[in-house]
Design a protein around this nucleic acid. Sequence first.
DNA 1: TGACATACATACCAACTGGTCTGTATCTTA
DNA 2: TAAGATACAGACCAGTTGGTATGTATGTCA
Lengths: 205, 205
Amino acid sequence: MSQTQTQRTEATRHKILMAAFAEFYKNSFQGGSINQIVEAAGITKGALFHHFAGKQELGYAVLDEIIGPILQDRWLTPLANSQDPITDLKLAFRRYIKADIDTGHFNQGCPLNNLAQEMSPLDEGFHQRIDKLYDSWRKTYAAAFTRGIKAGKVRKSVSPRSVATLVVASQMGIWGTGKSSRSKQLMTQAGDAVCEYLDNLKPRP
Amino acid sequence: MSQTQTQRTEATRHKILMAAFAEFYKNSFQGGSINQIVEAAGITKGALFHHFAGKQELGYAVLDEIIGPILQDRWLTPLANSQDPITDLKLAFRRYIKADIDTGHFNQGCPLNNLAQEMSPLDEGFHQRIDKLYDSWRKTYAAAFTRGIKAGKVRKSVSPRSVATLVVASQMGIWGTGKSSRSKQLMTQAGDAVCEYLDNLKPRP
DNA sequence: TGACATACATACCAACTGGTCTGTATCTTA
DNA sequence: TAAGATACAGACCAGTTGGTATGTATGTCA
């Protein structure tokens, strides 16, 4: 059951990526230390710089290979074919707010938003990648609202794009509130308010 | 018309604070450089460390003496005695979204939120100061909504605290969206959506 | 006017930063 | 099996970081 060389190589690369993700999540990108990543991953600088051209490229890879898939998994796939986005969004909100409170992650915020706020204005590569992710996020929600309208689950007067933009922005804000206040109560309160907002988008009887 | 010593002293202190605010706003707190601040302020390290015990204390002072008053001025005072928070909030949103788009500040985000996202989880002094500011922010909105309900301008069924929490969170998200996307359109779109949300809080006829 | 404090200026420092360079063991492939 | 490529290891480096120690000019006040 010994692994092949390619498997071992991929394993160290993955170790580095995971350690980098954790370090950047905890100490931000600029504040995060390469030495710390090396140590946490249990490898050496030689390995790190063999796999990634520099800190910048490592950051890009974390976005592409770790954060992107998480976003997909958490928020895009569940809404991808939804005919009733209000119900499904409320479900996802409740679920992941609870999850992040239980794990304690809520006071570290959203990994994507963290990088976005820190690096988007400073680095073009970050900006492009992050913008792309947020764009697909908004588009997924907007498409779901469009289907919801067609299915009679969402009021016709709502603008899918505007609402999608606001809902995504609200998520940034809710997770940001959790991070800066460290208050579970505030975070759930904000979550409840969003759910109420969403309910108000249903067709009036 | 020569100034007194106290005036000159206060002037250099203020120069340092302004330069620090600009530097932290542009490059974040951890990313911001003391040397850069010294240079931008046109003073020396001796002066800086004479007035502030360290980078940390300088950051605290920026929060207390620069960012706090800006928050007060922009968002708290205008709502302090409002009997019609929906109208007044919509006004403020439209006004300052436009202002930050015109000045180009919109792609640097909100100074308070920037520091909050970066430093709240890392430093207790930052956390406390920031939390206090956000708390007064939410409380001001909540009180305005309470008065709005009494004045018949806001539907009775809304929870002032929940809505206030969400509105503040939305602001974090809207300015965050502007910063990470650099898109004026997205920012105004999100602003419009918030205004619609607020309108839906009016009493139904 | 003399003593002392305040308000800086400047040279300096240890610690750490991201990054490079060279050496080498291991695997692949002709 | 020889030759080359791959995948690291680890010492090393220049630059920058926040911070300090010392010196000095200028103000204040008894």
